[in-house]
């Protein structure tokens, strides 16, 4: 089983969610996070002039999928979040999960996904 953690822009959430659902990945969790990449931040307006914000609002999309499915899920996220703009499209982290348990039934691993 693989855990996919994708840091994405807020404006990409709806499209990613829709495409993941269509591909059969219904269960997911979204966190509101603040962070920055190598760009370092952006300028926002103050009363007279601007100020630098070095932590931006982003979303962390988290889902755990079967080993054989994860490349498909990752491809969907990349497809929906890629853009021509430079910077800020996000990153995807994939890691191996030892165990998954559904709390209601006690089912484990693939049966719990």
């Amino acid at each position: 089983m693989k855990k996919i953690e994708a840091i994405i822009k807020e404006e990409n959430l709806d499209a990613v969610k829709e495409s993941l659902t269509q591909a059969g990945f219904v269960g997911l969790t979204v966190y509101a996070v603040k962070g920055r990449g190598t760009g370092g931040g952006i300028q926002l307006e103050w009363r007279a002039g601007t100020y630098k914000v070095d932590l931006l609002n982003k979303l962390m999309l988290m889902l755990v999928v079967k080993e054989e499915d994860y490349q498909r899920a990752v491809d969907i996220i990349i497809r929906e979040c890629q853009s021509d703009h430079t910077g800020g499209a996000g990153k995807i982290f994939v890691s191996t999960v030892d165990e998954v348990i559904r709390i209601r039934t006690g089912e484990r691993n693939d049966a719990a996904l």
Partner: peptide, 13 residues
């Protein structure tokens, strides 16, 4: 107008 000339017309401005 001043804010807009420099960049964008902010609400706080």
């Amino acid at each position: 107008i001043i804010g807009w000339q420099k960049s964008r017309p902010s609400v706080i401005g």
